[in-house]
Amino acid sequence: MGKTKDELYSEMSDAVVNMEEELSAQLSNEAVESGYDAFEAIDLGLAKGMEQAGRLFDDGEYFVPELLMCADALNAGVEILKPYIKTERQEKKHKIVIGVIAGDTHDIGKNLVKLMLSSAGFDVIDLGRDVPPSVFVERAVQENAKIIMISSLMTTTMDGMADVINILNEKGIRNEFKVAIGGGPVSRRFADQIGADGYSSNANQAIKMANELVGR
């Protein structure tokens, strides 16, 4: 077809930005057929598109429905490329457990953070919403996660975030995990107060923050 690798990657990126699920799958097949490195095709093609979608969301050009559709287009491509990723690259994924703190039902923000982090190459385990502090710790231990991420949209429930850190301290395992928090009423100051390692005000920034926390 005479398409260069870069051209293909940029079309893959556009397919994600334009929410085109089928096209994204089709182009991903093309990448496989051309024998390109699957990890690279995700990283430089699909994920670049998701990054741009995240920027459009920050700029108020895209809203939640659009961002979710971009994620579907991304996933359609990833599904195709995944089986071709060489195993040594697969193992590099850092694990994150994420959830909304107990008492709180607001999970739209958490879900966006999860989706952006997954697209940026993290292995994100979703604990759902209304999650008791002890469950964050149990699951993080079980999963051997690097980062515990907690979301809260309510002042009424945000103190539960500190409980997660207290439990880690009591168990003497605080140093085994990074803890990052976010959500409407949460601030950098609050994060510092409760001794969290990371805070970000939006899903896009959360990627940068997570990368820093794992030293990437």
Binding site: V64, P65, E66, L68, M69, D72, D107, I108, N111
Partner: peptide, 10 residues
């Protein structure tokens, strides 16, 4: 809610 929000378009 996540499926719902997407389906408002799709």
């Amino acid at each position: 809610p996540m499926i719902f929000l997407k389906q408002l378009r799709r």
